[in-house]
């Protein structure tokens, strides 16, 4: 304990000798000081019941003010698919020459909405969590992770609709063994998004302007990740094509289509790239958020 302990009111100063032993013995420990990374991870894990309860109740209550309730979870993506399908399929005819534009679009839109939903959720989660942070001390990382869990839980129903949708709508995509690979792709994607969410959550708390910027960024990503139509058909410049294909959002969406539509398990290189993005983002996100733990205590004006 390098720090000297003082008793210093105005006019009276001296060392607080009787307290020093308590500090040295560790009975008195510093408050509000960031714990080590490993310890922090353990603390977050200790709050798993909180994370689970919080995400669960939020899924159930978030649409409770609407007449159709949780049905909106499904109705919204269906409307989006109909809109983009009509606009790009019928009006702009980008679907010409594609064997299954509908399945391509359904997978793209639904999986992309999961990703953009997490990004937007991450931008506001810490600000919405202020009352909780004011009232209780808990590792702040529990908040973005809970948001992540909530979004992922909601995907359960959406994925089911997606699989049924591409199988039922003509030209039918029939289930193959490669559908099983959807699970690891989704897991890697969730890990990637968790890392990204931690970074966004940390900076958007201090700079709320990021929320505004993010709605623009997600729109760019929508077109730059081959969500609605294959970019190869419109982009011929090799460098730009390479940049787009290195974009992790593109990689994940492409991998989803690979295992669901094309009945293949994809190549090893793609899998390794996806795994690298996932693990890399998660590690970087964890450390960036952990290092900022005290920031979330500050009242910002």
């Amino acid at each position: 304990m390098a720090e000297k302990i003082y008793y210093a009111r105005e006019g009276v100063s001296g060392e607080l000798t009787d307290v020093v032993p308590h500090v040295h013995s560790g009975r008195l420990a510093p408050v509000g000081v960031r714990v080590g990374a490993w310890r922090y991870l353990k603390n977050v894990w200790d709050r798993r019941q909180y994370i689970w309860f919080d995400s669960h109740t939020k899924v159930r209550t978030q649409n409770s003010n609407h007449r159709l309730g949780s049905l909106w979870l499904l109705a919204k993506p269906v409307l989006d698919i109909a809109f983009y399908g009509v606009l790009f399929g019928l009006v702009l005819q980008v679907s010409r020459g594609m064997d299954n534009f509908l399945a391509y679009l359904i997978i793209g839109i639904l999986m992309f909405q999961y990703m953009s939903g997490v990004l937007n959720g991450a931008a506001s989660v810490m600000i919405q969590g202020k009352p909780m942070m004011r009232a209780f001390s808990f590792p702040r990382m529990a908040l973005p992770i809970s948001m992540m869990v909530r979004q992922t839980m909601q995907m359960g129903a959406i994925v089911a609709v997606m699989l049924v949708g591409i199988a039922v709508l003509p030209p039918h995509v029939l289930p193959t063994v490669s559908w099983l690979a959807f699970v690891p792709v989704f897991a890697l994607n969730a890990l990637f998004l968790t890392g990204l969410a931690l970074v966004i959550a940390r900076y958007a708390y201090v700079v709320p302007d990021i929320q505004q910027l993010l709605s623009f960024v997600t729109r760019v990503l929508l077109y730059a990740s081959g969500v609605i139509f294959p970019i190869e058909r419109f982009v011929e410049h090799p460098l730009i094509t390479q940049i787009i294909q290195a974009n992790p959002f593109y990689i994940f969406i492409d991998l989803y289509r690979e295992v669901l539509m094309r009945g293949s398990f994809g190549n090893l290189e793609t899998w390794l790239t996806a795994a690298a993005w996932a693990v890399g983002a998660a590690v970087v996100g964890f450390f960036i958020f952990w290092r900022a733990e005290e920031v979330f205590g500050r009242e910002l004006n």
Binding site: H22, A29, P30, V31, G32, M133, G297, R298
Partner: peptide
């Protein structure tokens, strides 16, 4: 411990 102090420490 909800806010960090500018100087000093609380034990």
């Amino acid at each position: 411990g909800l806010e960090s102090s500018t100087t000093g420490t609380v034990y």
